[in-house]
């Protein structure tokens, strides 16, 4: 662990919002029958949160659970605890088809923070998503396209948004976010 490095350690930018790479984050892809009671229980234990509804995420500072597709969840944990949690999941789900894999190192995580309207604007410059408060807010989780790469994001509160993408395109994603957040770029829309 001592040598583990996130994709862009310390990358930061300040414009109409603050953009920063959020460092190493434990992430588990869990695939299985999301309606199954055993699985729900195991997820609650691994992610410290209840099973989220369709396109929802239950998150807090320590981690949480996000709904990825009808048979897939993304479980967030502290980076160091991923293997242990996967071990727990494997034990709890031993009797049913499922897949629980560590994807922490395959991803990059960025955080946008600042005024809520500005945070929404930065995303709305890059993603074809309705970012108005009526359509998206804390508790929601959206997988989409950020310019030319896949991404997923959620708001932990009105002024904070976290966005996940693949690790290999971390620099591209950071450049996108930095550009969209550049000074003078406020749209004053939301």
């Amino acid at each position: 662990m001592s040598d583990a490095a996130s994709a862009l350690p310390g990358a930061e930018f300040s414009g109409i919002v603050k953009v920063r790479e959020a460092g190493l984050q434990g992430m588990i892809t869990l695939r299985g029958d999301l309606a199954d009671a055993t699985l729900k229980k195991a997820v609650a234990k691994a992610g410290g949160q209840d099973m989220p509804g369709q396109r929802k995420a239950n998150m807090d500072e320590q981690g949480g659970v996000a709904w990825m597709s009808p048979d897939e969840l993304l479980i967030l944990t502290p980076y160091d605890e991923v293997e242990a949690r996967i071990g727990d999941l494997a034990k709890a789900l031993a009797k049913q088809p499922h897949m629980a894999v560590n994807v922490s190192d395959a991803r990059a995580l960025f955080e946008l923070s600042g005024e809520g309207a500005r945070v929404r604007e930065v995303i709305a410059k890059l993603c074809p998503v309705d970012m108005s408060a009526d359509a998206f807010g804390p508790g929601d989780f959206r997988r989409t396209r950020m310019a030319q790469v896949p991404a997923a994001f959620w708001m932990s509160d009105e002024g904070t948004l976290r966005i996940v993408c693949f690790r290999s395109v971390a620099q591209y994603a950071f450049d996108l976010l930095r550009g969209a957040a550049a000074k003078g770029g406020a749209v004053d829309y939301f």
């Binding site: 396109r55 597709s69 009808p70 997988r143 989409t144 396209r145």
Partner: peptide
């Protein structure tokens, strides 16, 4: 499958 209404580029 996920209930989202989105544009064709997705």
């Amino acid at each position: 499958c996920c209930g989202v209404t989105a544009e064709e580029t997705e």
